[in-house]
Design a protein around this nucleic acid. Structure first.
Lengths: 336, 336
DNA sequence: CTGAAAGCGCTTACAG
DNA sequence: CTGAAAGCGCTTACAG
């Protein structure tokens, strides 16, 4: 094993103290008024000896690891995969490394991840909080650990958050379906107490009510961990029988995909027999025989803002940022 | 900010040395023969004061960070997203955290990521090496930094690697197409010097030759960073004109998707006018109007083995592991 | 302009 | 059985 160069190796080679070397390699030669030739000599030797600072030692000394912890539901889900990619890029640009963890919407896993990351002294967190993680987030908040929530938030914890304006998204989507003359619009959502889902449901309900269609409101809530099965049952329930829905609105990426599988299996023709409106983009939407009209989240903007706000809090900002960004609406063929 | 509990806080509260406290919280009370009641008292106090060890300090002292660096081409690509998820789970089980980075198949980014992760003292690497990263991998190898390559490898660097047996995969796929009476089978690959792609091309060529079809070999190589455009041009070139291909074989996930877009756009009917065979699973394959027959990689096994082998090397194993796993073959409708 | 020394929070060989 | 002390590799206030 080729030995790593240390600060003191450079210092002893040059017969100076580690302090000067540290000043120079950290670009503080000006304020510490290190001699010009000495500085040059140190830089040259450092380069020759291939010196790279040990960041663990720096971290311990400075109390900052330049690392952020990111917890999402599942990094293999395209929505979170793309989001993670944006966060990674932005964080790296700002000099931070990122440790990712997937909670699977499970509060036990989430608690474990948070604990692990705290042990590792991350400078802050970006979290898409799972159901039942209220106490965990509250504790981070109380301990004043820099934190930005994404995708979801808690109404009575005053953390930073960057989310979609979910109500506006499903409100517009529902209005669009109504405008396209769909009458019996069913909604498929998760069974959860999380606000973002509640808002999505509320947006749908408000649009229905605005058009005097409250009697046609049909909502099915499915369980995490049983998505494929529950969605299939929900679709069957909503579109078969003697008073079937003529359109379905799904409120997340994974629900949309599971819904498409179910619709495909039932042999129902989209959009002739059934209008379909999805949430978040998924490559598969484009390849469905009737490309899927959907709500698009500004993933890139959410990720960038999350990193920006987090870095500001790490640097001492006390102002809490609450952003609810606007969706985009991509019209394809599935509900014309 | 609620102050963090330190080892010495517990020690001074109990009037003992930090040494004993350290022994107890690390479960070494047996071998250090700490008194039973004292051990119990320390454990209780640690719990009450909510003690969690500062892992940065531990790392500095022990010279091990219990962190691994993972570099893939793009974590937002489903293949690498799923792979990363497996690696994350396995690493966490083994007590390691994971720092991810995406190289975008760019050797400059890759070099930067490796440097950053080395500064951060990761205990080892799992890397899907990008084109032109030969020197970087060689240096890691020479410095004896624990390392497992996945998905790709270099023939003349004796690192651990866990990959697919790529030759076997395209060999079988091509044989399948031939068996289904396709005659002019075109291949779309990346323009690269990486062995895994070369092997995939070779598997196709060998199968063609075995059937005396060497004159029908048609290969197009596209550039990273221009996938959508180049693949479209390649498809046009291969399937139009006066001697068109009757089937196309794609050698990666992203090429397959780009190919499906192009085929869709051209209005070509699959499988009647053109057989299609893809690489790696993608949700979109299932939703293409003619679900895509494809080669499936054992992602879960690759990820698990990679972590297992890496942890063994970190723990001192000198034996290099070279595994080329067998693919699965999923038959759908796109080339019957 | 430069250096000696303390200290970040741990672990562990050593002495008692 | 227990404690005092060194040391991991840095940074930085302080003294000269």
């Amino acid at each position: 094993m080729q030995k790593r160069t240390l600060l003191k190796d450079i210092a002893s080679k040059l017969g100076v103290s580690t302090a000067v070397v540290s000043y120079v390699v950290n670009g503080k030669e000006k304020e510490k008024r290190v001699g010009k030739e000495l500085a040059e000599k140190i830089r040259k030797t450092a380069r020759e000896m291939n010196y790279v600072p040990n960041q663990i030692a720096q971290s311990l000394r400075k109390g900052s690891t330049k690392t952020i912890g990111v917890i999402v539901a599942d990094i293999a889900n395209p929505f979170f995969g793309n989001m993670s990619r944006v966060i990674e890029n932005e964080a790296n640009k700002a000099g931070y490394a990122v440790i990712f963890g997937s909670s699977d919407e499970n509060s036990v896993k989430s608690a474990l991840l948070i604990k692990t990351l705290i042990n590792r002294q991350v400078d802050g967190f970006i979290i898409a909080p799972s159901d039942n993680s209220y106490e965990q987030i509250l504790e981070l908040h109380n301990r004043k650990i820099p934190l930005v929530l994404i995708d979801r938030f808690f109404q009575d914890i005053d953390t930073n958050y960057i989310t979609l304006n979910c109500h506006a998204a499903t409100f517009e989507a529902t209005n669009y379906l109504i405008e396209k003359k769909f009458k019996k619009i069913g909604l498929i959502a998760y069974q959860t107490s999380m606000v973002h889902i509640k808002q999505r449901i509320r947006g749908y309900m408000d649009a229905m009510k605005d058009h005097g269609m409250e009697d046609n409101i049909r909502i099915e809530e499915v369980r995490h961990g049983f998505v494929r099965k529950d969605v299939e049952e929900a679709v069957v329930k909503l579109v078969t029988g003697d008073d079937p829905c003529d359109a379905l609105l799904f409120v997340t990426n994974s629900l949309s995909i599971a819904g498409l599988y179910a619709i495909h299996k039932l042999g129902i023709k989209v959009p002739d027999q059934l209008g379909v409106l999805g949430f978040d983009w998924n490559e598969a939407f484009d390849f469905f025989y009737s490309p899927v009209t959907h709500i698009d989240q500004p993933i890139s903007e959410i990720g960038k803002e999350a990193v920006r706000v987090l870095v500001e809090e790490i640097n001492g900002s006390e102002k809490k940022v609450h952003m609810q960004l606007k969706h985009c609406f991509t019209i394809k063929d599935s509900c014309r």
